[in-house]
């Protein structure tokens, strides 16, 4: 089943130019897809169109087979959660637990059910120990994990991360990527990860490159990274660690694509020993 499907979708912010033009794109249920693109490539517009925060001009969007329209808006928003970029402007409440409760409260669940969902969401994001913490005292990575928990409490079948790691330090970025990867593998949540960090795309099953509102490349991360000359023309550079992994493989060392130097060091060590 297709988790998300764009059919001939066009959208303009009203300035004459199309932010997204005639886009055809789909994500299968259970997939982990990265959307890459430099600033202004239309990748964030894609996220906002998906759950009706922006209204498309032409075409059709379906989420788990349900067409996106005024009537189905709430159903789709339950199935499709979005985590945004800024860790400081997504939370409504000051305490982690209260903020995670916001979504379930909105859809009118009972207290017992909300409690269960908070337990689930905090466990899945590894935030149990911060249940009663003030959000303003947490690190960027922890705040974003709380934001993921807030979305997770609605039990979505798919999650879009709209540059959710862009404002974090490397440690925070790693935390988020690990949590999301786990959610995809263990909870079977379909993930669409919008990012401009090429490293993050290496963990995904499929990568999509956008440029000027169009999809210009598609394939597995290794396939995409093979065409690094082409990537450069879209304003994207291969991550240095990716280049190193690739060279090592070419040199006969069987290392997988990894995110950070420490991990790579471990992989190399296990290859050598």
């Amino acid at each position: 089943m297709k988790a998300l499907e764009f059919q001939n979708v066009s959208f303009s912010y009203g300035d004459g130019a199309f932010a997204i033009e005639n886009l055809n794109f789909s994500v299968e249920e259970g997939e982990f897809v990265a959307v890459l693109g430099h600033n202004g490539s239309g990748k964030s517009t894609l996220a906002r169109l998906s759950d009706g925060l922006l209204t498309l001009d032409k075409g059709e969007i379906r989420c788990f087979g349900i067409p996106l329209n005024e009537k189905n808006l709430l159903t789709i928003r339950k199935d499709l959660g979005i985590v945004f970029q800024n860790p400081d402007s997504q939370a409504v409440a000051s305490i982690v637990e209260d903020d995670v409760a916001f979504g379930p409260e909105n859809i009118g669940l009972s207290r017992e059910e909300i409690g269960k969902r908070i337990d689930f969401a905090l466990r899945a994001t590894g935030m149990e120990e911060f249940r009663r913490s003030m959000l303003s005292r947490l690190s960027g990575g922890q705040k974003q994990r709380a934001a993921i928990a807030g979305v997770l409490a609605l039990k979505p079948r798919m999650m879009i991360l709209d540059e959710a790691t862009a404002m974090l330090d490397p440690k925070g970025r790693r935390e988020i990527v690990e949590v999301v990867k786990k959610l995809n593998e263990e909870e079977g949540i379909t993930v669409l990860m919008i990012t401009h960090f090429m490293e993050e795309a290496m963990l995904c099953g499929r990568a999509v490159v956008m440029n000027r509102g169009e999809i210009v490349m598609q394939g597995t991360p290794s396939e995409i990274f093979e065409r690094h000359e082409e990537l450069l023309t879209f304003g994207l550079a291969l991550p240095r660690i990716g280049v190193i992994c690739k060279r090592l493989r070419e040199g006969g060392l069987n290392v997988p694509d990894v995110l950070d130097p420490e991990e790579l060091a471990k992989e190399i060590a296990s290859c050598v020993s």
Partner: peptide
Amino acid sequence: ELGEAMEARCY
């Protein structure tokens, strides 16, 4: 941004 995030969480 907060408005968008709230809407996305079914408010």
